[in-house]
Design a protein around this nucleic acid. Structure first.
Length: 547
RNA sequence: GCCUCCGUAGCUCAGUGGAUAGAGCGUCUGUCUCCGGAACAGAAGGUCGAAGGUUCGAUUCCUUUCGGGGGCACCA
């Protein structure tokens, strides 16, 4: 029996009690079932009687008494105790609890998936680094976290499109191209230009593809240099993301918005909505109507659209493409942008509390990281991957809530020990696979399964933890907090290691007789592998067979 | 000045309107004739920054306050 099934059973008992006239109260959609901290309090506990007792005009303990009478009749429920002010402590039959092992193995990679976000159509934009240089540490956290959030949302039934917005318009692209041009001619870095060594690499690539550009003056060479260097830089970014295990469904070019007139269209559409006005030669969006602290310019007095105008057009594009929810993942340095983005949504007639969601992540730092020589004074993502490893890096970043500032300690992350949580979890997976291989060699198979044999205290604990994956995934999706998965996996690993130390999957010593206990434990072992693999998969971290 | 995030064990950090606030590291004590010791069992270590308020119950929610990080462009 899974906690979800127990929750459903409690809801059914409540409904029956209402129908029988025993209680009069509005029932919640779902009943929360929790694993009590203390084992003395049974397998599962609920505080539903405390919540509903008062509303039903009853003492919580009396309410608990009524519910307990019905609940103890449910098949699989061994006993129900009322504790303290009205907690219901529920103990399951070993067989009912153990059945979960089979449920998980049979569900396979689908275990943990849930329908909590069914029907939601979500656009998630993250990273969106400028195409004028390599990815650096500032992009790393969202690359790891954003990708994990997308996976968690999908596992909860949402249709998610992950999107990378390329800021390939505006003067910065000309500055970028000029920087490359100057490198081609060994000229100094232009005013405000890009200094890193990677510019030289881009210059080499451009010259290789179009050697004639070397003899052309800046004005005529610039457009082609811009295109070639841009393409090379985006290829580099995509390669680094791929090495990090991150892929995007859509790479959206800002330039295409300008070229297709979408920016001007956006101004016109927002004007129709009544939120655009002209002042001092510029065109403004009255974002103060929706809580922004000042109105924002869309078209400058010189006729050039602002970056903000492109953002408005981009938002409308997402809306037009049918995304009900648009999630933006931004660094803390973009905090001031949140109200503006929300105002765009409001000006477009959307509900800023529903159709747009801006997640702000605190910045990270890495102690003692080497600064990239090729890119100037930044820490490059590709260097971090090479130094720490993609798995350790992704896990470490996914392990903390986005709003918590973190300082990574690379020396710790490079260690193959318990200092390093990713190894703890990965090791548990590798160990469980090794145990399965060992079992096979000793003739243990999953042929026989008798859940009532899973009676050891560590088996009860392990089963309880394994049963929580679906609700943990749903919770992580709802709150956009994949770190809950990581923390959960550490619990799974701990429960597995305890179980492993306390019981045997294979016959030991002279006793070579394979029993139903062995084969049943193999089911539990394999169920654990599956939960660890599924959870790590949601974080974009590998689940190794061997380490 | 305004906005926002953080403040929990010696360190790095989880967590929760409820029963005894947790993990790892560090410190201390144990566990290998046997499936992977990258492990397990246990001990010590806390006025949950402070003060008010709401509540049957607050570390959690609200207000104030102290300390720290980040942000407040006709830049992109």
């Amino acid at each position: 029996m899974t906690p979800e099934e127990l929750s459903t059973a409690i809801s059914a008992c409540l409904t029956e009690a209402v129908a029988a006239g025993e209680i009069t109260v509005d029932l919640p959609d779902t009943v929360r079932v929790e694993r009590p901290k203390s084992r003395e309090h049974g397998d599962w506990a609920t505080n539903i009687a405390l919540q509903l007792g008062k509303k039903a005009g009853m003492a919580p303990r009396d309410f608990a008494q009524l519910l307990s009478a019905r609940l103890s009749q449910v098949p699989g429920v061994s006993s129900v105790d009322i504790a303290g002010p009205g907690f219901l402590n529920i103990t399951l039959d070993a067989a009912a609890a153990g059945e979960l092992a089979r449920t998980i193995v049979e569900a396979g990679s689908a275990y943990g998936h849930n329908q909590s976000l069914n029907g939601q159509v979500i656009n998630m934009e993250f990273v969106s680094a400028n195409p004028t240089g390599p990815l650096h540490i500032g992009h790393t956290r969202w690359a790891a976290l954003g990708d994990a959030i997308a996976r968690v949302l999908r596992a909860s039934g949402a249709a998610v499109t992950s999107e990378y917005y390329i800021n390939d318009a505006g003067n910065q692209m000309n500055v970028f191209a000029t920087s490359v041009y100057n490198r081609m001619h060994s000229l100094p870095v232009p005013e405000g230009g890009y200094p890193g060594e990677y510019i030289q690499e881009l210059a080499d690539i451009v010259l290789e593809q179009a050697p004639q550009l070397k003899d052309e003056p800046l004005e005529t060479a610039l457009p082609q240099i811009r295109e070639l260097a841009y393409a090379a830089q985006m290829a580099d970014i995509k390669r680094t993301l791929a090495d990090f295990g991150v892929s995007f469904d859509v790479y959206f070019s800002e330039a295409t918005l300008h070229n297709a007139g979408a920016v001007n269209d956006a101004v016109a559409r927002l004007r129709e909505q009544g939120h655009v006005f002209d002042d001092a030669g510029a065109v403004w969006l009255r974002t103060t109507d929706f809580g922004d602290d000042k109105d924002r310019v869309m078209i400058r007095a010189n006729g050039e659209p602002t970056y903000f105008a492109a953002d408005a057009a981009y938002y409308l594009s997402k809306k037009d493409r049918g995304f009900e929810q648009k999630i933006y993942l931004l660094g803390a340095d973009h905090h001031g942008y949140v109200n503006r983005l929300k105002s765009i949504a409001a000006c477009a007639g959307d509900d800023p509390s529903h159709n747009i969601e801006v997640l702000i992540g605190q910045l990270i730092s890495v102690n003692g990281a080497k600064l990239s020589k090729r890119a100037g004074n930044i820490i490059e993502l590709r260097d971090l991957i090479e130094w720490i490893g993609a798995d350790a890096l992704r896990y470490s970043l996914a392990r903390y809530p986005a709003d918590s500032p973190i300082a990574l300690d690379p020396e710790q992350l490079r260690k193959n020990s318990n200092d390093n949580p990713v190894y703890y979890v990965q090791y548990a997976h590798a160990r469980s696979r090794a145990a399965a291989r060992q079992a096979e060699a000793k003739g243990v198979t999953r042929g026989e399964f008798d859940a009532s044999l899973l009676t050891h205290a560590t088996e009860n604990d392990l089963l309880a933890v394994l049963g929580q994956l679906p609700s943990v995934v749903a919770g992580a999706a709802e709150s956009r907090e994949p770190h809950r998965i990581a923390r959960y996996l550490e619990q799974v690993a701990a429960a597995y290691h305890s179980w492993y130390a306390a019981t045997r999957i294979t016959p030991v010593g002279e006793d070579t007789q394979v029993t139903a206990e062995h084969s049943t434990r193999l089911w539990l072992n394999d169920a654990t592998s599956q939960v660890l693999a599924n959870g790590l998969g949601l974080l974009g971290v590998s689940a190794p067979e061997k380490m």
